[in-house]
Design a binder for these strands. Structure first.
Length: 485
RNA sequence: GGUCUCGUGGCCGAGUGGCUAGGCAGAGCUCUGCAAAAGCUCGUACAGCGGUUCGAAUCCGCUCGAGACCUCCA
């Protein structure tokens, strides 16, 4: 298993050659959603980015175990004593697990629309309470956590004696202690930077479990430590998530793993950047979240039209996963047209015929494609290279370039395979039963007869009417074809 | 207030010490009954001001602007 893949590791802040701990196996853990409401389009971007990464690793031949959790324990809101899931449950007058079920299903449906592959394992926080309690016990035993009023807090200062709390996020422990804001309900903590790993539940709290310290619930960061370790081992290859999780979530995860399991959990940390709308980060908490449903239906004040899931996916892949990406109508419309052009290339490439020799260097073209993806999954460059491929298709179609049988077959499989399997893009033309095509062929035949009679008014009338119905007519050298607009 | 990121042509968005990103939009040409499609060609962009260098959009400093994290967030 040899590849030349390089990835940007947040931990080292450098590009590193990707070398799995146990090739050809790769363990990848990605922080999944908290299922208390519909995901927004920013969440979709993150999971689409990791879908691209997962797909490319598979394409390279790695045996990937992809674990993505579902956070179904609500965690505390900043200034209330109520967590997100039980709050939602109370508002909608339903069971907390009903909330969880509804939005888990919705999340899966959404990711399917965007053609994301399912993870290998999708564990839930509530399904791993025992393991979480065990990890807390280990951390306490090691002297890195203390109990206070039925809650258990991670002792950041004790941990910092020998470890570097802040290594991932570049934070300085002393500044952290000074700069942490004064929050209510911090009385139980010894230091403001300490974080809860077990929280005693207030009487009105719905989701709670019995533990040695109290009837309560686990700290948010704990589930990922536990589930990643359980399914991928104490040290695994890739841990991913959104940039906004770097601190405190991932920082705390590392601390918990080192304190409880005695091991540095992750070799490569990958973080995806945020999606903005009108230059502002999209976030549920700010009420600026645009949902996938709104994107697909166009039902949102900021949208001038609807955009299909594949248009949105293509648009996302046109930016690098570590860059912020700003949504606006003009850019999305550009993506819509570009995507259609790419898909036309996929259709047309299959129609090409071979010649005795080649006038294009397909090996080089293919190598450039892989070079792009090997450079930290640089999908924008890869897409540029695929558009170069579209140009090839058209030149060959026009007889201006030609390929040998072996080159043509390589070109076809690489071009189509990359678009379908690596980028996860597929045509959205709803297939028909051939009736439409039969009708179209008949109509076009009538039109061509009119053209031969130089009856251009009839020919144009047919073309205009078909155009209004959504069919674009193209008179080529070898006959007339049509595409759906 | 602290930490950090970014500022690329009309729009989105790669790249990065000297060589074409790409998509969309725009202009011209070829093809065509016309059109569409397709092909070819074109704009010569890197916030501003200094500095380093033979040479910087790319490195350094400052200024301005935008954003993120520091509190739940993908």
């Amino acid at each position: 298993m040899e590849s030349n893949l390089h990835v940007y590791n947040t931990l080292s802040r450098e590009m590193e050659k990707f070398e799995p701990i146990n090739p050809p196996f790769v363990g990848m853990y990605v922080c999944g959603p908290t299922v208390y409401s519909e995901v927004h389009i920013g969440n979709v971007r993150t999971f689409t980015s990791f879908d691209l990464i997962y797909r490319y690793l598979l394409h390279l031949g790695y045996k990937v175990r992809y674990v993505r959790n579902i956070t179904d324990v609500g965690h505390l809101l900043d200034d209330s004593e109520e967590d997100k899931i039980s709050k939602k449950a109370r508002l909608e007058n339903i069971e907390p697990m009903e909330v969880v079920q509804r939005y888990t299903v919705d999340f899966h449906d959404t990711m399917k629309l965007f053609n994301a592959l399912s993870p290998s394992i999708e564990p839930t926080a509530t399904g791993h309470l025992i393991e979480q309690i065990e990890l807390i016990e280990e951390i306490v035993k090691g002297g890195f956590a203390y109990e206070s009023n039925g809650s258990v807090y991670f002792d950041v200062q004790a941990y910092s004696k020998n470890e570097n709390y802040g290594e991932l996020s570049g934070r300085n422990i002393d500044e952290l202690l000074v700069n942490t804001r004064e929050l209510d309900g911090q009385d139980d903590k010894r230091h403001p930077a300490d974080f809860a790993i077990w929280k005693k539940a207030e009487p009105q709290h719905i989701m709670k479990w019995h533990a040695p310290w109290s009837l309560g619930f686990p700290g948010w960061h704990l589930e990922c430590s536990v589930m990643s370790t359980k399914y991928l081992g104490a040290t695994f290859d890739i841990h991913g998530g959104g940039m906004d999780l770097k601190f405190p979530h991932h920082e705390c995860e590392i601390a918990q793993n080192k304190a409880g399991y005695g091991q540095d959990p992750v070799k490569y940390w990958l973080h995806t950047n945020m999606l903005t709308f009108n230059g502002r980060k999209m976030a549920k908490s700010e009420g600026t979240g645009v949902t996938p449903r709104q994107m697909i239906t166009g039902d949102h004040p900021l949208l001038t039209q609807a955009y299909s899931p594949m248009t949105i996916r293509f648009f996302m892949l046109q930016a690098h996963y570590r860059s912020t990406l700003d949504f606006n109508n003009e850019a999305l419309q550009a993506a819509e047209k570009g995507f259609k052009r790419l898909m036309r290339g996929v259709e047309d490439v299959q129609q090409l015929t071979a010649e005795p020799t080649s006038s294009l260097n397909i090996d080089q073209w293919k190598a450039d494609l892989y070079t792009a993806m090997d450079d930290d999954f640089n999908s924008p460059i890869a897409i540029a290279q695929l558009f170069e491929g579209v140009r090839y298709v058209n030149l060959i179609k026009d007889g201006k370039e030609h390929l040998s049988a072996s080159d043509l077959s390589l070109f076809q499989s690489t071009f189509t395979g990359f678009i379908h399997d690596v980028l996860g893009l597929k045509s959205e033309d709803e297939g028909d039963d051939g009736q439409v095509d039969g009708l179209m062929q008949f109509i076009l035949q009538l039109r061509n007869e009119a053209k031969e009679r130089k009856d251009y008014s009839t020919a144009d009338s047919i073309r205009n009417t078909l155009q209004e119905l959504g069919f674009v007519i193209k008179d080529g050298k070898d006959g007339t074809t049509y595409t759906k607009a």
